[in-house]
Design a protein around this nucleic acid. Structure first.
Lengths: 136, 136
DNA sequence: GCGACCGCAACGTACGCAGTTACGGATGAA
DNA sequence: TTCATCCGTAACTGCGTACGTTGCGGTCGC
């Protein structure tokens, strides 16, 4: 897991939650299972909470749980929530190209990447987190 | 250019070469135009040379030139030569998943990513480096 | 009040990559 | 032959990113 570690952690955790939606899980337990540490889990899962995919409960008997039914959470939801952008290049904060080739090139490539990004999200939207189990 | 800087440099340089295929360009001149330095240019262009896209000539009147006609060099050739893998996740050198969910998940996601990667390469193959000019 | 848990901020560390310097090899002109 | 020019490569530095760790405060249940 060099890259995509956030996405992997998120999908892995959500897959488990989809099996027992009612159960609360602490960040410590999740971290132990995923081989990382609780702060990292809270960072990643906190992003998903802001996106409305998860709920966190403070206090003694606190923990994490799904914010809506598992079949209503798709891989695309997770991907977009984490703002991973596997495909896209740098955000449009680039300096104007000094050379005419640059603008044409960047526009052309950016257009292709945007198309591919869309197709990726479309494919991810076809699978929900309870479609994924030990069988694949 | 945070990421993709190698790809940008390569495409930019090849686009210019496509306009004057016979002209030899030194890494210093290319670096000056691209706003980087000669060693970086040689590193990137050296990869393209190994892939058979460019020729380099040592000595006093040396420099870089296209190894084959511009219309026979596609964006996909450059992309694959640089081994950029914009889409793909980690290479298959991962440790076996300790959890049954992991294997199913990784297989599922990897399958989708492979499909998207293929579609990206297919799209890139439709454009050659002399199709790109100041007009786009 | 106390323990367990989340939320957040601040640091240290590891890694990749661009940039830089340096040296050797190859080529062509004087 | 000598020299300048240019490529090829290795080694080092600096920077940005992300993970890992620690610490402190807030919240909830006992």
């Amino acid at each position: 897991m060099k890259r995509n570690s956030r996405l992997s952690l998120a999908l892995h955790t959500l897959s488990h939650m989809a099996q027992e939606p009612g159960r609360l899980r602490t960040s410590a337990a999740i971290a132990a299972h995923a081989g990382t540490n609780p702060v990292v889990v809270r960072r990643v899962l906190g992003t998903l909470r802001k996106a409305g995919l998860l709920r966190s409960q403070g206090g003694a008997a606190g923990g994490w749980s799904l914010a809506r039914p598992a079949h209503q959470i798709t891989l695309a939801d997770v991907y977009l929530a984490l703002d991973e952008r596997l495909v896209a290049g740098p955000p449009p904060g680039e300096e104007a190209a000094d050379c005419a080739f640059e603008s044409g090139l960047q526009a052309h490539v950016a257009h292709i990447l945007a198309e591919v990004e869309d197709s990726l999200v479309t494919r991810l939207r076809e699978t929900s987190i309870d479609d994924i189990g030990p069988g694949g």
